[in-house]
Design a protein around this nucleic acid. Structure first.
Length: 611
RNA sequence: GCCCCCGUAGCUCAGCUGGAUAGAGCAGCGGAUUUCUAAUCCGCCGGUCGCAGGUUCGAAUCCUGCCGGGGGUACCA
């Protein structure tokens, strides 16, 4: 049968058909062709087109008539098995099963699972992670890092040029605090032994000291909460830290030298975590990188009339009763708005990106509005700017965002350790259960075991984060995320392992199914459903990318796992009735495994061959 | 005060460019299964989609108001 491979993007494929059918009926068919979705009930076919209803009024006809007309205009070929008009005018489309089978064979070739790279690749700069390097990473940094990394992977896989940039907080007050702390509170012995830890200690100590002063600056009425002498000392320390920061910014040799000394210490710790998380950046250009450009940015913005003097500071105004954005304080200091604008200029000049994504906490929404608005007025209006905002990670006890700066809340490292330990504990428990049942347990070397626990533990944390809609807050629960049940990384990793087990047990070389894919038979409903689900992979990736929502990938994988599970229950693979059926099912298994593996990879989650 | 976001099953959350009876997971209840295995499967129970209006063939989804929660709101980032 000579089915050609069109595009593995089912939605695009169908929309193209619909657009053809609609041409001549309406002036602009695209919005109507877009009214297409996967049917939520198999009774309604595979996909449903919903345009007839809304088109009816414009054409002055009844919806079923319009639907009939559209169906008559659909290209006549072998794509559909059935096209039905139902209800108030839905057009239900069902693919020919033979066509699905042919696609299976086609996408098995090559390593892209049928997904073709973007025809018009775009350039993306993705600004993510951006930790404050003076303090240890904590749960709050998790989301930006994980979501940003996943978006990099997804866009890159779809053929775009991606620059992942870690915009470090390496130049602000936090370093003034370290400088002050180093000069007045350091413990030389501790510094010799473990400089990273000693710096962290000093930082936490100063954070505490400064808090009253900051509280009172926020809200003068808070003054009554503190004893006057404690408050006075706090204010003095804060002033001293600011002084150190200013000196650093002014190029004071001693402070600059210390800064250069502190940086590698601080970075070593952060990089260890990135390595463990398997997160890489193309650039790590922190705030310090832009420092020398800030004066010029302010000058240029003033010269162009975008910024002006206001209440003693240099500010960009956004209309009456709107808060302004300060780009230079009345003391002469630059702000993060200034740095972000300098960063935009740098990025545009260096990469000329089509889009710049900021994977940052939702609380900074107003700041980014200011920055985008200012950047456009400044002339940098060609890139699209997106604040890929996300909600907070909530402490299950307090139901409030995790706080670390003041208290002893978990650092990210502790959290990851806990997750990995939990994975190890689960492993022992499950092995025990299996031993009691008399099952064979794979002999894994200690090294292999460690890899497995790491992949499972870290994967669990990542997946739990990514499978949430990023905009909503979520309650952090180690129990839930490392569970074997439900939509978790462990479940998906195990689905993969179990699938690989079939090939081992059947002594089958999966490589053969990729170079010489056998014909596929989809006689059973579960086989057909699995094939259809496999073909939806590209739709899932596209939907994840257009809204910057990796949870569309996890949702897809979960559906795939369920389709596979149904198939697995009803369709024996190694014991299939005929050799041809066995071959066909092995191909479906292999495609499933590869899709799971690729999907997880695009989320930054590792698969393992055995668990 | 002003601006933004959120309010969906007992719990945790999807769904929100309007579409057919509102979906998962966990918890609860009832069956099937002892395996191609670190995941059993199927069914049931459970919802005035915060409240009230409006738009229309059709609203969890769009608009307005209200209630409740969170966040932001000029010299921190």
């Amino acid at each position: 049968m000579g089915y050609s491979v069109h595009s593995m993007n089912l939605i695009t494929l169908l929309q193209d058909r619909l657009r053809l059918a609609l041409t001549g009926l309406v002036d602009d068919p695209s919005p109507y062709a877009a009214m297409l979705k996967a049917a939520n009930d198999p009774k309604h076919g595979d996909y449903q087109a919903n345009c007839a209803m809304s088109l009816a009024k414009a054409l002055g006809k009844k919806p079923p008539e319009v639907a009939k007309e559209i169906v008559a205009r659909l290209p006549q070929d072998d794509l559909f098995e059935k096209v039905e008009i139902a209800g108030p005018g839905f057009i239900n489309l069902r693919f020919r099963t033979e066509w699905l089978a042919a696609q299976m064979q086609a996408i098995a070739l090559g390593d892209r699972l049928g997904i073709t790279p973007a025809v018009k690749p775009k350039t993306y700069v993705i600004d993510f992670s951006g930790p404050n390097v003076a303090k240890p990473l904590h749960v709050g940094h998790l989301r930006s890092t994980i979501i940003g990394d996943s978006l990099c992977r997804l866009l890159r896989f779809l053929g775009h040029k991606v620059i992942g940039d870690n915009h470090l907080g390496d130049w602000g007050l936090q370093f003034g605090m370290l400088l002050h702390g180093y000069k007045h509170h350091r413990d030389d012995a501790a510094l010799q032994g473990d400089p990273v830890r000693e710096l962290a200690r000093v930082y936490v100590m100063l954070r505490k000291k400064i808090k009253p002063a900051e509280d009172v600056e926020d809200e003068p009425a808070n003054a009554k909460n503190y004893p006057p002498d404690e408050l006075a000392e706090s204010q003095a320390v804060l002033a001293a830290c600011r002084q150190e920061t200013s000196k650093l910014h002014a190029g004071d040799p001693e402070n600059l030298k210390l800064w250069k000394q502190f940086m590698p210490w601080a970075m070593a710790e952060i990089e260890a975590i990135y390595k463990r998380l398997d997160v890489k950046f193309d650039e790590t250009l922190g705030e310090s990188h832009y420092h020398s450009m800030l004066a010029d940015v302010v000058r240029d913005l003033r010269a162009k009339g975008i910024a002006q003097e206001s209440r003693g500071a240099i500010a960009i105004l956004f209309g009456e009763n709107q808060p302004a954005a300060i780009i230079q304080s009345s003391h002469g200091a630059y702000t993060y708005t200034t740095t972000d604008l300098a960063t935009i200029r740098y990025r545009v000049e260096r990469w000329n990106p089509d889009e710049i994504l900021y994977v940052v906490d939702f609380r900074q929404a107003l700041h980014f509005q200011h920055v985008y608005d200012a950047a456009r007025r400044w002339g940098y209006d060609q890139p699209k700017y997106h604040h890929v905002s996300f909600g907070s990670v909530l402490d299950p006890k307090s139901r409030k965002p995790f706080k670390t700066s003041e208290g002893g809340a978990a650092t990210l490292e502790e959290l990851l350790n806990e997750a990995v330990q939990h994975a190890a504990k689960m492993y022992v428990q499950i092995c025990e259960e299996r031993r009691q049942r008399g099952d064979e347990i794979p002999e894994l070397s200690p090294g292999e075991l460690k890899q497995v626990h790491e992949a499972v533990g870290i994967g669990a944390v990542k997946y739990a984060d990514l499978c949430q809609n990023r905009e909503s807050d979520y309650v952090f629960s180690l129990e839930k995320m490392t569970s074997l049940e439900g939509n978790t990384a462990t479940y998906m990793q195990n689905a993969y392992v179990r699938n690989r087990g079939i090939f081992r047990k059947g002594d089958e070389n999966s490589e053969l199914y990729r170079t010489h894919p056998p014909p596929v038979l989809l006689g059973q409903p579960k086989e057909r459903a699995l094939a259809l689900q496999l073909l939806r992979f590209e739709d899932a990736l596209q939907s994840a990318v257009v809204d910057y929502r990796p949870n569309n990938v996890t949702a897809y994988l979960w559906d795939l796992a369920k389709s596979y599970s149904g198939f697995y229950e009803e369709c024996p693979v190694l014991k299939a009735e005929t050799p041809a059926l066995r071959q066909s099912r092995l191909l479906l298994c292999d495609l499933t495994a590869r899709t799971i593996q690729k999907g997880l990879e695009l989320l930054g989650i590792r698969t393992i061959e055995r668990m």
